[in-house]
Design a binder for these strands. Structure first.
Lengths: 241, 241
DNA sequence: CGACTGATTGATACGTCTCAAGGATAGTGG
DNA sequence: CCACTATCCTTGAGACGTATCAATCAGTCG
């Protein structure tokens, strides 16, 4: 009776992408329609929400009666094991939608990585709009489909890639999302521990790999919140091995 | 303009489940509606297909103009890296649907694990049916949502579980899917290499863990195609650590 | 029966984790 | 503005888990 939603980019996706795809299907992901355009009818039923750093937006198992769009900030979507291990399924940021799954309860937890402003849509209203507006239905479907394709790529990363490949893939994907080219500063509001929990690594390993990349001049790290990819070709070479 | 689909069970899901859920959300998965009932209108537009063992049903990147339902046999949905490594996202079997993603090209490869009989639905026709039949739309949405929830659980497995936990989780999930209880024979048409590529392990590690479980009397392996879970409680204990 | 594919077991190497210490950064209160 | 503290990041040494490589065994098909 409710929905959880998951990441899919909808924002100002007309941004230029100077990267060729890291992984095959990324090109398609970037070429995706401007989802936000077709989900504009949702605007009228939205409520603005604000969450502070590390605040929980909803927990796994909570009744899922709202879906969300990120206005500003970054959100992590994750699951916890009984003994506290954490796996971050995805990060969603500016313009991304999440929590659109058609399930009674949320299948994952959503937490604010930074201070965050969201639009919240009552699930019942989305369903209602969907009844009469095929474009809305179509784009929820597209949202979920893109999300599944992205998760499949992440399964490959978690199951079959080395630490170096994981970190390189991650950096390239972040830059691509931001529409940044070689040499530009990439804002990284995401901490090392969060990166590790997304890539199936430990913080220490993430640090070591980043250090190695820095030494080899693949990246520069001007400060903790920013990274510059100085050699995209080499990073892409690392990805496949 | 087409669709890829992914796994979600729709078959004779009224079968009794004697297992309590391995992972939290599995209960919900089992309690899912009888999807096949609501997708019955698809029956009229279906074409019966037959594939032999290891035959490719469609490849990643192929135009996705059909969706499928498994009548008999087992199919693996997987992705390959440039250098040949393979990650199996899921296995689908009797009564399961796959290939319903709303994307132009398939985001993964589908291959027959055993000889397989499928129903094939033209995507254009599914879309047409969806226009007029809300129940069809609703259930495609549910299909994708269940699929995403299942993939999220698998992300945790790949990113945060040990080899023992992975194999134990896999065995419990297989038994649950089949609706089997402790001591009953579980048919496992899936080879060890396929299991390994699903769990992010090597064949050797899968064998070693199975051997260990056999020694500890958690399972019996009467032959290569069958496994008996003799101590479900212990296996479940292994899952969390 | 013989050849092939897949499964198993063993010995060893390697990658990543774990544990521990030190350094940087940001937030807080004087 | 600075000291203080908490948090996060970084680096190192060693342990551990899984991969790798190699050989044997079992089951299947011709």
């Amino acid at each position: 009776m409710s929905i959880v939603l998951n990441a899919a980019r909808g924002g100002t996706s007309a941004a230029p992408f100077r990267f060729s795809p890291v992984i095959a299907a990324n090109a398609a992901e970037n070429a995706r329609l401007s989802l936000s355009e077709n989900l504009r009818p949702l605007q009228r039923i939205s409520v603005r929400m604000r969450y502070g750093r590390n605040e929980t937006i909803f927990g796994e198992g909570d009744a899922a009666d709202h879906s969300y769009k990120v206005i500003s900030g970054t959100v992590r979507l994750c699951k916890y094991t009984g003994d506290g291990r954490r796996q971050i399924a995805d990060f969603v940021g500016d313009g991304d939608f999440f929590g659109f799954l058609d399930l009674a309860d949320h299948s994952f937890t959503a937490e604010a990585v930074t201070d965050v402003i969201l639009l919240s849509y009552p699930r019942s209203q989305i369903d209602r709009l969907g009844e009469t507006m095929p474009a809305v239905r179509k784009h929820v479907l597209r949202l979920l489909s893109e999300n599944i394709a992205a998760m499949q790529r992440h399964l490959v990363l978690l199951g079959r890639q080395t630490a170096r490949e994981k970190v390189a893939s991650f950096l390239l994907r972040m830059a691509e999302r931001a529409g940044l080219g070689e040499g530009e500063r990439l804002d990284m509001p995401i901490g090392r521990q969060d990166v590790a929990d997304h890539l199936g690594l430990t913080v220490e390993t993430v640090c070591r790999v980043l250090g190695e990349f820095r030494q080899k001049r693949l990246v520069m790290v001007p400060n903790l919140q920013q990274i510059v990819l100085s050699n995209v070709a080499a990073l892409r070479a690392v990805c496949e091995g």
